[in-house]
Amino acid sequence: MVDFNDNHTVQTAGATGEIWRQSALSATGRLFVDNSAELTDHYTGANGTTAQTETLAKFLSQTVLNPQAAGVVLDRQRDLVPAIRDALDANAGRLLDAAGRAPAGSLEQERYMQQFGRLTASVSGAAALALTRYDKQIMESKASRKQFATTVATLVGATKLGKAPGARQAIEALANRYYDAITSNPERPDAALAGALYDNYAEQVNTLSSSLNQTGLSPAFEAAFAAEVTNLQQNLGVNLGGHR
């Protein structure tokens, strides 16, 4: 489905192409939302299996981070973008919760933190893809940049906040940080955003480490995140060091 969205619908013009595009995005979104735990585990290398985060990054760039996907209906009760966003955030929280419950310093804990690193790396890859593919729509105005920054901020951007007091203010602060990053670096917005995203994810891991009084979480996360970002740059043809 991800390959279909990449190679077919975007090349079909007119009303027919628009119908196919929205139908394909909806179908892909339903598949992910209805099976989000299994797909997240599969693509982020659960239990030491091989990760395939480039597919996840492509999927996120086609759906949640695609300005043209706003308003696409998932089903009679849900819209595409918020449903995928909530599913992804729930799974990010699931991985952090599982790492917190795992025995300190265990292989199980390390693998959960590696998965979280790969998942968040896929969001950075997706953001870079979106900024390349939808450059004009995203960067054309203050409003469009703000909308994109807000979307990114709510996409694994405030994991663990949930219904906590001040969650809305925290998400707004993240959105402002991401907006400043892409606005102040118009020639390299993907690099600036990647740095801001990493800072936020690292803060989440540090918060968990402090709450558990454990020191082994950050190294596992950082190693997996860095390795996956490198793989994504190679496999997706994006350059987090400079905007194309």
Results as ranks from 00 to 15, higher is better:
Asn200Glu: 15
Glu110Phe: 07
Leu80Ile: 06
Met1Gln: 11
Glu110Gly: 05
Asn231Ile: 05
Arg188His: 15
Tyr178His: 15
Asn200Phe: 02
Tyr178Cys: 08
Ala90Gly: 12
Ser106Lys: 07
Val156His: 10
Thr207Asn: 13
Ala27Asp: 12
Gln233Trp: 09
Ala92Tyr: 12
Thr16Pro: 00
Thr183Gly: 05
Leu74His: 09
Phe4Val: 05
His42Ser: 08
Leu88Trp: 10
Gln214Phe: 00
Pro186His: 13
Ala202Lys: 14
Gly14Asn: 04
Ala173Trp: 09
Arg101Phe: 13
Arg30Ile: 03
Ala104His: 04
Leu107Ile: 03
Phe59Tyr: 15
Gln147Asp: 13
Ala127Phe: 00
Thr16Ile: 08
Ala128Glu: 09
Phe225Ile: 02
Glu222Lys: 11
Leu208Ile: 11
Val10Lys: 12
Ala175Tyr: 11
Ala173Val: 10
Thr63His: 02
Ala87Trp: 05
Ala69Cys: 05
Ala224Leu: 06
Phe225Trp: 15
Arg118Trp: 09
Gln77Phe: 12
Gln137Ile: 00
Ala164Asp: 13
Glu108Met: 05
Asp6Phe: 01
Asp89Leu: 07
Ala87Pro: 06
Leu212Asn: 07
Ala158Tyr: 07
Val72Asn: 02
Asp199Ile: 01
Phe59Ile: 01
Asn235Arg: 15
Thr159Asn: 10
Thr50Asn: 05
Ile182Gly: 04
Val152Met: 12
Pro82Ala: 07
Gly241Gln: 15
Val205Met: 02
Leu56Ile: 05
Gln62Thr: 00
Ala70Gln: 15
Val152Ile: 14
Val229Pro: 02
Gln109Asn: 03
Arg30Leu: 09
Ala98Ser: 13
Thr183Ile: 01
Ser209Thr: 07
Thr44Gln: 07
Arg177Gly: 13
Val123Gly: 01
Gly100Asn: 07
Ala98Gly: 08
Asp86Ile: 05
Leu88Gln: 10
Leu131His: 08
Arg188Glu: 12
Arg118Tyr: 08
Asp75Leu: 00
Arg76Val: 10
Ala227Thr: 11
Thr215Ile: 06
Thr40Arg: 02
Gly117Lys: 04
Glu18Asp: 14
Ala149Leu: 06
Arg30Thr: 08
Arg177Glu: 15
Phe221Lys: 02
Glu140Gln: 12
Thr49Pro: 00
Ala90Pro: 08
Ala83Met: 01
Ser141Asn: 04
Thr230Ala: 14
Asp180Phe: 10
Glu18Leu: 09
Lys136Leu: 06
Gly237Asp: 12
